[in-house]
Amino acid sequence: TYTYKLTDEEASRRAEDEWRNRGYDVRVRNNNGTWEVEVR
């Protein structure tokens, strides 16, 4: 499981799409203004 911490929502969406396209399960959540993109 990888977790990315990003401050930019758009960057988190791009990361989400990119990993999803590669067949990974992705979750995005906002934690106090930081976007966490979790990849498994």
Results as ranks from 00 to 15, higher is better:
28 V>W: 03
39 V>R: 02
2 Y>T: 11
36 E>D: 04
13 R>T: 05
3 T>Y: 11
34 T>R: 07
38 E>D: 06
29 R>Y: 13
23 G>K: 02
26 V>N: 00
24 Y>N: 01
27 R>T: 15
5 K>T: 14
10 E>A: 13
16 E>V: 15
35 W>S: 00
13 R>W: 07
36 E>A: 04
1 T>P: 09
15 A>K: 11
19 W>P: 00
19 W>I: 02
29 R>T: 14
11 A>N: 06
22 R>D: 03
8 D>F: 05
2 Y>C: 15
21 N>V: 08
6 L>V: 15
32 N>M: 08
15 A>R: 05
40 R>V: 10
19 W>Q: 00
28 V>A: 04
28 V>C: 07
40 R>Q: 08
27 R>F: 13
38 E>G: 02
33 G>F: 03
1 T>A: 11
18 E>C: 15
39 V>F: 04
23 G>W: 02
8 D>P: 01
40 R>A: 08
4 Y>N: 02
10 E>Y: 10
1 T>W: 15
17 D>V: 15
20 R>H: 05
9 E>T: 04
18 E>I: 13
22 R>A: 09
24 Y>W: 06
27 R>Q: 12
32 N>Q: 08
27 R>C: 13
15 A>I: 15
15 A>E: 07
32 N>R: 07
22 R>M: 10
40 R>P: 04
37 V>G: 00
40 R>T: 12
27 R>D: 08
15 A>D: 05
29 R>C: 08
28 V>S: 05
32 N>T: 03
29 R>Q: 09
38 E>H: 08
17 D>N: 14
22 R>E: 04
14 R>K: 12
11 A>W: 06
33 G>Y: 02
3 T>C: 15
39 V>H: 02
17 D>F: 14
8 D>H: 04
2 Y>P: 04
17 D>W: 14
25 D>Q: 13
34 T>D: 07
11 A>H: 07
13 R>D: 03
31 N>L: 12
7 T>H: 13
34 T>Y: 13
6 L>I: 09
23 G>I: 01
29 R>K: 10
37 V>Y: 02
12 S>E: 03
34 T>I: 15
28 V>Y: 04
13 R>N: 06
24 Y>F: 12
3 T>G: 03
15 A>Q: 06
36 E>S: 05
34 T>F: 13
40 R>Y: 12
28 V>L: 06
5 K>F: 15
22 R>K: 11
3 T>K: 09
32 N>E: 09
36 E>G: 00
16 E>W: 10
1 T>N: 09
16 E>R: 09
8 D>M: 04
16 E>S: 12
19 W>E: 02
10 E>T: 09
35 W>L: 03
24 Y>V: 03
19 W>H: 02
10 E>I: 10
19 W>T: 01
28 V>N: 02
38 E>L: 10
10 E>G: 08
22 R>G: 04
11 A>T: 09
10 E>K: 09
33 G>W: 02
11 A>S: 12
23 G>L: 01
4 Y>M: 09
5 K>L: 14
36 E>R: 03
28 V>H: 03
17 D>G: 10
7 T>E: 14
15 A>M: 15
8 D>R: 02
18 E>H: 14
21 N>M: 12
1 T>F: 13
18 E>T: 10
1 T>Q: 08
15 A>T: 11
24 Y>L: 04
9 E>N: 04
9 E>A: 09
22 R>L: 12
38 E>F: 08
37 V>F: 04
37 V>A: 02
39 V>L: 05
24 Y>A: 03
6 L>S: 09
20 R>S: 05
27 R>M: 12
3 T>D: 03
36 E>H: 07
28 V>R: 11
38 E>R: 06
12 S>G: 09
20 R>Q: 05
33 G>P: 01
35 W>I: 04
18 E>S: 10
30 N>R: 09
35 W>G: 00
31 N>I: 14
7 T>K: 14
10 E>N: 09
31 N>T: 09
13 R>V: 06
28 V>M: 05
31 N>K: 09
39 V>C: 12
25 D>H: 12
29 R>M: 10
16 E>D: 03
4 Y>S: 02
8 D>C: 08
21 N>Y: 07
3 T>Q: 05
21 N>W: 06
27 R>Y: 12
